[in-house]
Amino acid sequence: MKSTHVSQVIAAPASRVYDFAANPDNLPRWAAGLAQAEVRRDGEDLVAASPMGDVRVRFAPPNDFGVLDHDVTLPSGEVVNNPLRVLDHPDGAEVVFTVRQLAASDDDFARDCAAVARDLEALRELVEG
């Protein structure tokens, strides 16, 4: 199984990037691969309409370390862990998302990595804009 780290440097303080990305109301604005419409809260979980159907998402608790890891429960019941970090960077912040191939074909894995790159670019545009 391959893993790829997809990253984006954002010209803003890491704390601001973290706060924006951690806000569930902002997910449909930048995380198209996860949320295509308003996210609703169900206890500690978020429920989102995604390209895969409705998914349940549980983020790491709020923290001062920039950790936005999240487990996504797919419609099939499979749980996918997604490591996501907001790090200090000399130019502001760097957001790093680890994409894991799991059972995806090489072509699907490449598409997943490209989709994550688009999402992180959208995050950069929103935070910097």
Rank of each mutant, 00 (worst) to 15 (best):
M1K: 00
K2G: 01
S3M: 05
H5L: 15
V6T: 06
S7L: 10
V9L: 09
V9F: 10
I10P: 08
I10R: 14
A11G: 03
S15N: 11
R16L: 13
Y18A: 03
D19F: 06
A21D: 02
A22E: 03
A22Q: 03
N23E: 11
D25C: 14
N26T: 08
N26Q: 10
L27K: 10
L27D: 11
W30E: 00
A31Q: 00
A31Y: 04
G33D: 05
L34H: 10
L34Y: 13
A37G: 12
A37Q: 15
E38C: 12
R40D: 05
R41Y: 07
D42Y: 11
D42W: 15
G43M: 10
G43W: 09
E44H: 12
A48R: 00
A48E: 01
P51R: 06
M52L: 15
M52A: 13
M52E: 14
D54A: 05
D54H: 01
V55R: 07
V55D: 05
R56H: 11
R56V: 05
R56Y: 08
F59E: 00
F59P: 00
P61I: 08
P61V: 09
V67W: 04
L68V: 05
D69G: 02
D71T: 04
T73P: 06
G77M: 05
V80K: 01
V80I: 10
N81K: 15
N81S: 14
P83Q: 12
P83C: 10
R85L: 11
R85H: 14
R85W: 11
V86P: 00
L87E: 09
L87C: 07
D88W: 14
H89I: 01
G92E: 13
G92Y: 15
A93T: 02
V95F: 08
V96C: 08
F97E: 04
V99F: 02
R100G: 15
Q101Y: 01
Q101P: 05
Q101L: 08
Q101W: 01
A104E: 10
S105V: 06
S105P: 02
D106H: 03
D106R: 01
D108N: 09
D108M: 11
A110Y: 00
A110P: 03
D112G: 04
C113K: 07
C113F: 07
A114M: 14
A115H: 07
V116G: 00
A117F: 04
A117G: 12
R118C: 06
R118V: 03
L120S: 01
L120H: 01
E121P: 04
A122G: 02
L123Y: 07
L123F: 06
R124W: 11
E128F: 14
E128P: 06
